[in-house]
Computed example of a mutant assay.
Amino acid sequence: MAVPSPAAPPRLGMMSPLDLDEHPKHLVRDHVLTLGVIVLFCAVVLLLGR
Rank of each mutant, 00 (worst) to 15 (best):
H26G: 03
V3D: 05
V28S: 08
P17G: 09
H26D: 10
P4C: 01
H31K: 09
M15N: 14
H26L: 07
V44I: 10
L27T: 15
G13M: 08
P6F: 02
M15Y: 12
P24L: 00
L47G: 10
L40C: 04
V45K: 08
P24M: 00
A8Q: 06
L40H: 00
V37P: 00
F41R: 02
L47H: 08
G36L: 02
V37K: 06
L20P: 02
F41I: 01
R29S: 08
M15W: 09
R11T: 13
G49Y: 10
P10M: 00
H26R: 13
V45M: 07
V39D: 03
V28I: 15
P24S: 00
P24A: 02
P4R: 01
H23E: 11
H26T: 12
L46V: 08
V44Q: 04
V44G: 04
S16I: 10
G36E: 03
L35P: 01
V3T: 13
H23M: 13
P17S: 05
P4I: 00
A8G: 07
D30F: 02
L33H: 06
P10Q: 00
T34L: 11
L12A: 13
E22R: 14
A43K: 06
L12I: 03
A43P: 02
I38L: 07
L46T: 07
F41E: 01
D30S: 12
A43Q: 04
L18R: 11
I38Q: 03
P6T: 02
V39W: 02
L27D: 12
D30T: 10
R11L: 15
K25Y: 09
H26V: 05
L47R: 09
S5P: 00
M14A: 13
V39I: 11
A2Y: 08
P24N: 00
H26Q: 14
D30G: 12
L27F: 10
L20C: 09
V32P: 02
S5Q: 01
R50H: 12
L35V: 14
L46G: 08
A8S: 11
L46F: 14
I38F: 06
C42H: 05
L27W: 15
L40R: 03
P24E: 03
V39A: 11
T34H: 09
L12P: 04
V28Q: 10
L20Q: 04
H23Y: 14
V3N: 01
R11G: 07
V3H: 03
L20H: 03
G49S: 11
L20F: 11
L27K: 09
P4T: 03
L33G: 07
H31M: 15
A2T: 12
E22F: 05
M1R: 14
A8W: 06
V3G: 01
L18T: 05
L18K: 07
L40M: 06
L27P: 15
M1P: 12
P10L: 01
P4N: 00
R29P: 03
D19I: 02
I38K: 00
A2G: 10
V28W: 13
L20W: 08
A2Q: 12
R29K: 07
K25A: 15
V39T: 07
L33R: 07
L33A: 14
G49M: 08
V3W: 03
D30I: 05
A8C: 08
